Computed example of a mutant assay.
Amino acid sequence: MKLTHLFALSSLLLPVFAAPEPPTEAIEERAKYGADTKYFHEPGGNDELGHYDIRYFSGAPVTYEERGDTLLHLIRSYLTVFREKNVETWIAHGTLLGWWWNGKIMPWDWDLDTQVSASTLTWLGENLNMTFHNYTSVNEDGTSETREFLLDINPNHVERIRGDGQNVIDARWIDVRNGLFIDITGLSETNPSTQPGIWSCKNFHRYRTRDLYPLRETVFEGVPALVPYSFDRILTEEYSARALTKTMHEGHRWMPEQKEWVKQEPIHSKKPPRARAHVPRSVQAEENPKSGLRNLLRVL
């Protein structure tokens, strides 16, 4: 995929050995959970409040523009630091779908998804848990900005089964300014004797070894990245073929001339919109999609 590098990037790793002291409000909020087994906590369970780490949530969701800017620096910093540390990771789920379309984050996304192997996850827990990372981006006009991120490894990552479902996320890369994050999940062969070569996370996503490896070198949001070898099979199995052709979603339209998803002005209706709880993004299958995967394969 041919993408223009818009930024010159550099990062500095600053290890620490203790978790940040959460604000008083967060301590009181955590106290409500009592003996809750969940490690990562969010201030709410919908799209407005379900994608912030409670320790760094200011009390109000960020704007559409700030969310996009935060996610952009989250993924650039994450991919850059992990590559500098020679830690293998690849983009997954909706983040991978964004890469398929134009090598960018879907503008309606609230967080990002990456994956690592379970052995890599163990190494991260032993060597980089609770480390802060300063990341500086230099813009084309010469201005620069440094942001700070926390790598937090869920201690429950050692259990490779779903359990009570409260700890399916194994680690997070968190922007300490507002609490937005990247979800990091580990993959392992949980049943190597009966299902060799089948890798799974704790949320029941399964992958074949030949679909994951060898990982493909590419570019995502202007920085080097890795994607699974059979990204096409993975995306269609997870989202259906319709996800690769649908040009209207979440109030955005795909503009082929610009190769961008553009936010559409809402159409005002007399009927108030129905409240929706947060659910994973899904799309309906289409028997005869208008185009296929060959469009992407031509540029790889």
Rank of each mutant, 00 (worst) to 15 (best):
S58I: 06
E221V: 15
E148A: 08
I105V: 15
G45Q: 12
V223R: 02
D211L: 04
T136A: 01
V262F: 02
N154T: 08
P155C: 11
M1P: 08
E257D: 13
S137I: 13
A19N: 00
E66Q: 12
Y52R: 09
T70H: 11
P228C: 06
P22I: 02
G165T: 10
V138A: 04
T236D: 07
L121T: 02
P224S: 11
F181G: 01
L128Y: 11
E25A: 14
L121E: 00
R147T: 15
M130D: 07
D69K: 09
L14K: 05
A118T: 04
I153P: 00
E145C: 05
N203D: 08
R216W: 01
P43W: 12
D183H: 03
D141S: 08
D211P: 05
F57Q: 00
A285R: 11
L97T: 06
Q258H: 15
E189R: 11
L72Q: 09
M1H: 09
R55F: 10
S144L: 00
L300V: 15
D109Y: 13
T218W: 07
R172F: 04
L215R: 01
N167E: 13
D53L: 06
R177K: 08
E65H: 06
T4D: 09
T89E: 03
A285N: 12
R160Y: 09
Q166Y: 02
K2A: 15
T194H: 03
N46W: 06
P228S: 09
F149M: 03
T4V: 13
W199F: 15
N167R: 06
F231Q: 08
V219H: 04
K85L: 14
L6T: 10
H268K: 12
E238M: 05
E21S: 11
R208G: 10
T122H: 10
A277S: 14
K32F: 05
T190F: 13
P256S: 13
H133P: 00
F57G: 00
D152V: 15
L180V: 13
H249D: 05
E28H: 12
F220Q: 01
T120G: 10
A19E: 09
I75W: 06
L235W: 01
E260P: 00
L72S: 12
F57T: 03
E126N: 14
D164S: 13
S193H: 03
G292P: 12
N156W: 01
V176D: 01
D170P: 04
I182Q: 01
S193G: 00
T194R: 07
A118Y: 10
W108R: 06
S282P: 00
V219A: 05
A31M: 05
L150E: 03
A18V: 09
N134I: 05
W99E: 07
A19M: 10
F149D: 03
G59P: 11
A18M: 10
E48R: 12
T24L: 11
E140H: 01
E148N: 04
V279F: 02
F82H: 06
K246Q: 11
I153C: 12
T120E: 06
R208H: 13
V116P: 08
S240T: 15
L244D: 13
P196Q: 05
H5W: 03
Q264M: 14
D69L: 14
W100L: 15
D175N: 11
V116L: 01
L121D: 00
F7G: 00
T185F: 09
G94T: 06
Q264E: 14
